[in-house]
Write a protein that binds this DNA or RNA. Structure first.
Lengths: 187, 187
DNA sequence: CATGAAAGCTGAATAGGCTCAGATTTGAAG
DNA sequence: CTTCAAATCTGAGCCTATTCAGCTTTCATG
């Protein structure tokens, strides 16, 4: 992870990792079955922490649908570069798309699904509090929200120049548009 | 393209392509700067045709927001496996995420943006016809729609077992949810 | 200690994308 | 038909992820 962060995912060779760990190349492969596996270990760490922080917000969300969603999403975004760089995210995303049947691809998809589920649960909770129109189904709504926020995150990760602030601003626009559709009276 | 479709993107070596074309490996690289470039040529062909077909629908969309959107999206999905297989799509998506600064990554992003724009323009057109709430901004709405439909397409491409019918059904659910939010009276 | 199987380690070898120095072909000019 | 420069082609060689046959260490048992 240190090596990837410092030199980038692609420039780092397995031989470099092996050297840092003072073992042979073969030994690295005894513990991680591919180079992508090394990366996915970090992705898992990152997302598990984000999910845990998200649960804390779910337990007691701020008042108002838009504010509550904003809180959760900003949390996601703020934490996203804790362990991974944008380049590492790109590599991880590429692996998960290219090899969906492999353990790594599946793990990434599973983490994604858990994030989407967390958003959907927040929507359901807001609906129970009367802050989302009662006639809407929180599941597809949560998924639409997550798709949008995820697409923005992908755009953020693709563009090295884009700041987290710009990402948050874009997400705010989207959340505002969705909130206008979701909230009951003031719609 | 023929080779990729028959044997899969990864199993085909540049040497194979060179043989089929009766030239050397080096000559292939004179015309396509990477293996991904060969693939992206096909992606471009596919998406350009989809965009052209989409313009025809934009010119005279069916009555009703949901029906019009369904028509455009189904067109997209129906055409998506004309030249590319799911595996080829996965490889192309991986390339576009992993290397956003390269010509290929940029080209893919541009095609994506043009599709999103087409959806947004359809929303604007429907709004002009009074089939979408007049207080909504068609641009972010179109983008949210496209993000959703694109996410469904990615899920489709990831799962070899998923049929186009299942994809359409999932899209219908999403469109139905969005239409309920977007349409004026019947909400 | 001795033993032997299980666990762990090793790095040379393999495979395939990509490069580049040199060979070949083309085509305009004489 | 020559000549020569530009365009094109070539494939051996480089690089790095990944494999695997064999070597070493560990450790429970006698």
């Amino acid at each position: 992870m240190r090596r990837f962060r410092r030199d980038g995912y692609h420039p780092v060779r397995i031989e470099d990792v092996a050297e840092d760990a003072a073992v042979s190349v073969g030994t690295v492969y005894n513990y991680y079955s591919t180079k992508g596996d090394l990366l996915m270990a970090t992705v898992t760490l990152e997302v598990e922490e984000v999910l845990a922080a998200g649960e804390a917000i779910l337990a007691d969300p701020p008042a108002g649908a838009e504010a509550a969603l904003r809180r959760l999403i900003w949390q996601y975004y703020d934490h996203s570069l804790e362990y991974l760089t944008k380049e590492m995210w790109r590599a991880a995303m590429a692996i998960s798309i290219e090899a969906p049947h492999t353990p790594n691809g599946r793990r990434y998809a599973e983490l994604d699904a858990r994030l989407a589920d967390q958003v959907a649960r927040l929507v359901a909770r807001l609906q129970a509090r009367g802050e989302v129109r009662p006639d809407l189904d929180p599941r597809p709504l949560g998924e639409i929200l997550f798709h949008m926020l995820n697409a923005l995150f992908v755009a953020f990760v693709r563009d090295d120049a884009m700041t987290i602030e710009a990402l948050k601003a874009a997400a705010d626009d989207g959340l505002c548009a969705m909130a206008a559709l979701m909230t009951p009276a003031g719609g």
